[in-house]
Design a protein around this nucleic acid. Sequence first.
RNA 1: GGCUCCGUAGCUCAGUUGGUUUAGAGCGUCGGCCUGUCACGCCGAAGGUCACGGGUUCAAGUCCCGCCGGAGUCGCCA
Length: 590
Amino acid sequence: MLRTHTCGELRKEQGGQTVTVCGWVDSRRDHGGLVFIDLRDRYGKIQVVFDPQVSKDQVLHDAAGSLRNEDVLRVTGEVTLRGAKDINPKLPTGEIDIHAVTLEVLNRSKTPPFEPSTLNPPNEELRLKYRFVDLRRPRLQELVHFRHRLTKLIRDYFDREGFLDIETPMLGRSTPEGARDYLVPSRVHEGCFYALPQSPQIYKQILMVAGYDRYMQIARCFRDEDLRADRQPEFTQVDVEMAFVEREDILQVIDGLIIFAMKELRGEDYPPVTRLTYRDAMERYGSDKPDLRYGMELKDLGDIAANCGFGVFKNTLGAGGRVRGLCAPQAAAKYSRKNIDELTTFVADYKAKGLAFFRVTDTGLDSPIAKFFNETEQRAIIERFDAKAGDLIFCVADQPKVTSAALGALRGRLGKELKLFDPNQMHFAWLLDFPLFAWNEEEIRWDAEHHPFCNPHPDDVAFFETDPGQIRANSYDLIINGYEAASGSVRIHDPAVQQKVFDLLGINPEQAEARFGFLLEALRYGAPPHAGVALGLDRWVMLFTGCDNIRDVIAFPKTQKASDLLTGAPAAVDDKQLRELNIKVAPSGK
RNA sequence: GGCUCCGUAGCUCAGUUGGUUUAGAGCGUCGGCCUGUCACGCCGAAGGUCACGGGUUCAAGUCCCGCCGGAGUCGCCA
């Protein structure tokens, strides 16, 4: 070891000891005579003092004067207690110094593009290009450390519950459903490709058939789709599957993990996890991933608006649409007409053709369209929302789906703008009973909402012939603070049910065999009832740490265009490599 | 693929309705001074293809079009 102690661990108890520490120059304060260096490692900072009267060494003193930020040092010296007036209460090591006797410059640093100690980090492009500097920042070190603690805790938990950690291949077979695959060409098999896993879904089901009835893996997954603040092209799932279980068993295992994590990481006793159905969520919050840290629920105004004088509402209702709204508490004074116009543009992104609003006053409703509502109707609207003077009611009249999407998004935006929740709170909720199928307007057919192996709710099997849209899936999503943080389902293990699903999806037996034959074959060799779930680890870390994007909790993330600014990936490769793979690039001409 | 925002010194930013000789400030960098600082201080200096390419104009950092990069979002993500 080049050191006897880390920079962060020394305290006054080590006073008088001669120690050797290594680290980076965080800052230097050169007084001509005295030179102070703050030496930093990931455990903290310690002040090193170069005092010519103590060392009586001109060479050492000159060397100290030549130091620059981010130089890497090895320093030996005596731990000394500071005088009372020199104590720095801002640092855990602020009661001591190291008086340097020897200094070894292990490496010089170029002037960094920004200081790790900066209070005001630069733009993300620069941070990603110089990620090795960015990762020195205490905040990022904290996030990296937190991620380690969470993954350790997750492994400990599943180990204690009897789960086996089993690795599955990264080089797999492309299956046509789902997200776009990242492909890897085969050198040995001309014209053939592996696909990187979108998730270990099929392998874990096969593991159930193979008898490993409690499986978990912290698995890297790849999806070649467009990115968001909470989506990276490669991300990490905590993948879980269990055999001989029902939905309830999966929920309880994850509930146990939530309670364990909240206790260990935050010292909180987390109450039973909220559960609500997809139908309730859409009705009350307009979203299948509502932030439940606050209320501001959506209300239906169809009965009140049915006979009102406002043509837009009446006509929409007449055409099979809905009139729904929400009430933003004490927002009337905070949103000018211009702000509301901006919100109207915002909901237009969700296909809403308009956004009606009412300011609630002591006497009734104030709005350009208030005149179309008589006193009884105005009172009914106020009662529906239990509105108070100063509140601001927004309404959308449109097709049912549009009212949900627009008001759900508006609720999310207003919740943030009005600060309706404690940003440090963690709220977990299970969303249950998603529809099994979604009608695809463009392709004029049914699509699987989750995946084609998701078991239908046992009570709904009769709907296969009558109304497939009514069939509930035996599936579940875990929502944390408005983010989908886990998703799973009970799988189909009955070939007859699987056949029904394929039939409805328009996948004939030959196609099913061609696409998923290996899984279907496995399921014919004694598949136990099984169910599973996958947690989005990056999102969990993001939410636990209060970050607003997942790049900050990934050591080496990619940009929105899936580039790695540190390494320059993706990049062109040598012709020789392409020739070996029998690949020719055909430029798109763009 | 659509929409929106951003790009001025190494970094963070200012730069007015397009108009004042040489585009400014703070931090950082470089040089000098400084023995208790800890965001050390003081003095001085260097540092700019205003992302890039067109256009409008007597005049463009500023307006318009395109393009590159970054971010947010809709579509997409079983």
